[in-house]
Amino acid sequence: MDLVQLIQVADSTLRLSTPLLLACLAGLFSERAGIFDIGLEGKMLAAAFFSAGIAALTGSVWIGLLAGIGASLVMSAIHGLASITFRGNQLISGVAINFLASGITVLVAQAWFRQGGRTPSLEGPERFGSINLPFAEALSGVPLIGPIYSEILSGHTLLVYVALLLVPASWWVLYRTRFGLRLRAVGEAPEAVDTAGVSVIGLRFAAVAICGVLCGLAGAYLATGQQAGFVKEMTAGRGFIALAALIFAKWRPWYALGACLLFGLLQAVAIQFQNIDIGGFIIPVQFMDALPYILTVVILAGFVGKAIPPRAGGEPYVKER
């Protein structure tokens, strides 16, 4: 593997990690508040379609982005209504959202565009362009730092940088603000929050709404940043990988960055090195493609150690006397 390949892998790691990171942070807010969310996948998918679809119809990626976030928020609202207001089973509600998104995106795509459940290819202002960081040109000649800065960090779309900045932002919100304290408390001991005179329901809906916005960003990035348009089931399990990363990260923002970069790296490697030839034996491309998923299972099964989920996670809050 030479330097060029290394840079390419690093570059695509960042690109591929972004949707995972956004979804992972989305899940983090939701689960820290005690609402398990296996519907990340469905929210991303809905956001991916509606951002691409609306961008294609209006010609503006920004309106598309808003539509994507809106679609994801609607899904969040359904999840919140089912699991917070009506105290339903959070897993079932999440599964339902995944099914709903999977069906509705293709259905609406076919009705709007008649291209077999996809959107037209997005061009120009219909998708996010790449941004060159300042001095990227000037620094490109500097050894080591030059390639890292100008080749790897620079030249991504806006949402990549947004996702990276959201890591310290999430940490700050969770650990340095009143809202964060209450949010963490409501996932651990909602009765403590309730008896302190703070609304459990309000906090949990706020968390689910944040989750919706972040999933919206993740989906919009997939369809209008990383790719140029929506195709059927384009999230391809990323919502579940983000969940795995969340557990691997023990529900912490900085660990989430690390976990998502690792999963992104696995995907990047799979794309970069297809058909590896080891002494005459060629590792099939299918194996390389499956690698991230296999390692998801392996990591979760063996390397997580003791990951303690938020204590009140998954349990609807019922006031006891």
């Binding site: 408390a185 651990e188 001991a189 403590a192 204590r311």
Partner: peptide, 15 residues
């Protein structure tokens, strides 16, 4: 009605 993995101080100011 305490949050187990919070400090005493955090529990007192919560809310």
């Amino acid at each position: 009605k305490l949050v187990q993995n919070f400090t005493v101080l955090e529990n007192i100011i919560l809310g």
